[in-house]
């Protein structure tokens, strides 16, 4: 397990509220994430997990409370592109760019945003594809890859911006069971390299292997925060116990 530096927060969320019209999706979430920490977020469907991690790169704007990422507060008028550069995101449905090759998917952002020259971007892209184990597919189009391979490309694509934080929103739940392992392996390696990670995932094995903390969401707020061992073996709250029973018997 990575030892998090407990005096150096990179994400601070205080009393975060989010409304979709009348619907109160986040109800005063408080969370502090230290540099290098790996956080696993679990919770029933519709509890606001996606909404919360999407507020951290402001794909969703929150209406009340403060979120500070790497010293920059997320609010109307702040430099969102600058924050998004520091925060990589991996989606449940991959969201690769189907009209670009695998390599172009990875090099697009460094070339467009960081204005990296093409050969340098290609070298970086190949290095990252090597790291996620699919460099030999670099010239193919996403549609020609399996789901697991596509998700690994998506991870490489996010890493290409050299982010300080990585957000994962159920990265393995759209995958066939035999492909889950290859994606989790990449994520574990990343965690061990010291990356700060927020992962929405119900993969207990992953949580036990690399997470520093597990956070349980229900009805738009955090109900329980615990170490992985504590969370899975000795949950404190009734709702946590019920939830764990459900996913164990699923």
């Amino acid at each position: 397990m990575t030892q998090a530096n407990s005096t150096d927060p990179i994400i601070i969320a205080q009393d975060v509220h989010k409304y979709f019209g009348q619907f109160h999706a986040l109800r005063g979430v408080n969370m502090t994430v230290q540099k290098g920490e790996v956080l696993v977020i679990v919770g029933p469907s519709g509890s606001g997990k996606s909404t919360f991690i999407r507020t951290i790169n402001r794909l969703e704007a929150h209406q009340k409370g403060t979120i500070i990422v790497d010293g920059i507060e997320l609010k109307e008028g702040s430099n969102l592109d600058a924050i998004r550069r520091e925060v990589g995101m991996v989606f449940q449905s991959f969201n690769l760019f189907p009209h670009l090759t695998v390599l172009q998917n990875v090099t697009l952002a460094p070339m467009q945003v960081r204005k990296m020259p093409k050969d340098k971007a290609n070298a970086l892209g190949m290095e990252l594809l090597e790291r996620v184990g699919i460099s030999e597919q670099a010239q193919k189009f996403p549609a020609q890859l399996s789901g697991g391979q596509q998700q690994r490309v998506a991870i490489a694509r996010a890493l290409a911006m050299q982010p300080k934080v990585m957000l994962f929103d159920e990265p393995t739940s759209a995958l066939d069971p035999e492909m889950v392992g290859e994606v989790l392996d990449v994520m574990k390696t990343l965690a061990k390299s010291g990356m700060t990670m927020l992962c929405v995932t119900h993969e207990m094995g992953f949580a036990k292997a690399v997470a520093n903390r597990v956070v349980f969401f229900d009805q738009g707020n955090i109900v329980e925060e615990n170490t992985p061992e504590g969370f899975f073996n000795n949950p404190q709250h009734e709702r946590t116990k019920m939830f764990l029973n459900q996913i164990r018997h699923a």
Partner: peptide
């Protein structure tokens, strides 16, 4: 998801429009 992925990579609105 196409726009969201582009924006999450730090592409500006017009870059996402033109490139993706």
């Amino acid at each position: 998801g196409q726009t969201e992925a582009s924006r999450s990579l730090g592409l500006s609105g017009s870059q996402a429009m033109i490139q993706v």
